[in-house]
């Protein structure tokens, strides 16, 4: 049983760190920019398809992974432009980009093959970054370590970025656009670049996931938006957001915790079709936890007052 426990921890670290980047990306758009960005499922698949396609065609995996950041960035910029320049409502802008990306992803996955498009790329015969980074003999340990390093670097980067003049202006834009403009901030530019950064992280997340799973397919982004949001909510509720540093770490840990919970359920033999019900219950518990906390504190105070 200790074995199972150990594996649950390694599984959740494995997926939690990789998807932690996804959570950070969604955090930037939803929480910092206050922009409900639906591009995520498209840009996630884009990162996976793009990286897998490059590796499939012989390009160095490290370079391929690195370049996925830029494709994601472009996807985010497109959504940003649709919204700020063409005045398309935010939800619709994300949907438009996500829809267009479906075709682009199919085309990417067909590169180097006989047909003009494909819905999947298999990587098991090729080297991924995890093959190049073999510190340990066991592949999953390499994955955990490399993902941890990458997530830590990205988190540090985010902490630094949002403390710069530019980053502060971006956060101000998300909080109060009118005030931001009154302080000389180009809010349109902030939204465009902010969405770019957000989707760049989401793409990078997928590049890691595709290489860990040794395949990328056109459906790999399904459900990732919900996963990201759930990770943020769980992370904030359990680990708090007292200051910015605390906040972004909570988001990543939230992702780990999310997968921990799912993995526990799977290992406890929960029937698969019940998993969706489990998600809903977890989210409810997590969201009402602060409420319950407050009630307990209020009740305690009442007791104290009665005693005095």
């Amino acid at each position: 049983m200790l074995d199972t426990l150990r594996f649950i921890i390694t599984d959740s670290l494995n997926l939690g760190f990789a998807y932690g980047l996804l959570a950070l990306g969604i955090f930037i758009s939803y929480r910092l920019l206050d922009f409900a960005d639906l591009t995520a499922e498209g840009s996630f698949t884009l990162g996976g398809a793009f990286t897998a396609a490059l590796i499939f065609n012989g390009i160095n995996p490290i370079l391929s992974t690195f370049l996925s950041i830029f494709v994601g960035f472009i996807a985010g910029i497109i959504t940003g432009l649709l919204h700020t320049k063409l005045k398309i409502p935010s939800l619709l802008s994300g949907i438009i980009t996500m829809t267009a990306l479906f075709s682009i992803n199919m085309i990417l996955m067909g590169i180097g093959k006989d047909s003009k498009y494909d819905s999947v790329v298999y990587l098991s015969k090729l080297d991924t970054i995890y093959e190049l980074f073999s510190v340990f003999k066991l592949r999953y340990l390499n994955i955990i370590l490399l993902n941890f390093i990458i997530v830590s670097l990205v988190t540090l980067f985010c902490y630094w970025l949002f403390g710069t003049e530019f980053g502060m202006s971006l956060r101000a834009t998300g909080m109060n656009q009118k005030m931001a403009r009154a302080q000389g901030i180009n809010t349109s530019l902030m939204i465009i670049i902010g969405l770019g950064i957000s989707n760049a992280l989401i793409s990078l997340s997928a590049a890691l996931v595709a290489q860990a799973n040794q395949s990328a397919d056109v459906n790999m982004g399904i459900g990732t938006l919900v996963v990201g949001l759930a990770s943020i909510i769980i992370g904030e509720a359990i680990f708090g957001k007292r200051n910015f540093c605390n906040w972004i770490i909570s988001v990543v840990l939230g992702s780990v915790l999310y997968y921990l919970i799912i993995d526990i359920a799977i290992n406890l033999g929960l029937d698969s079709y019940l998993l969706k019900l489990l998600y809903a219950i977890i989210i409810i518990i997590v969201l009402t936890a602060p409420l319950i906390k407050k009630r307990i504190i209020t009740l305690k105070r009442k007791k104290k007052n009665v005693e005095n």
Binding site: F7, D11, L15, Y19, Y140, A212, N213, N219, M220, I222, G223, T224, V227, Y259, I262, D263, I266, N267, S272, L275
Partner: peptide
């Protein structure tokens, strides 16, 4: 059809 669940279940 959920990709991340597929991975977790496969590992388990």
């Amino acid at each position: 059809g959920n990709p991340s669940n597929m991975q977790l279940m496969a590992k388990t």
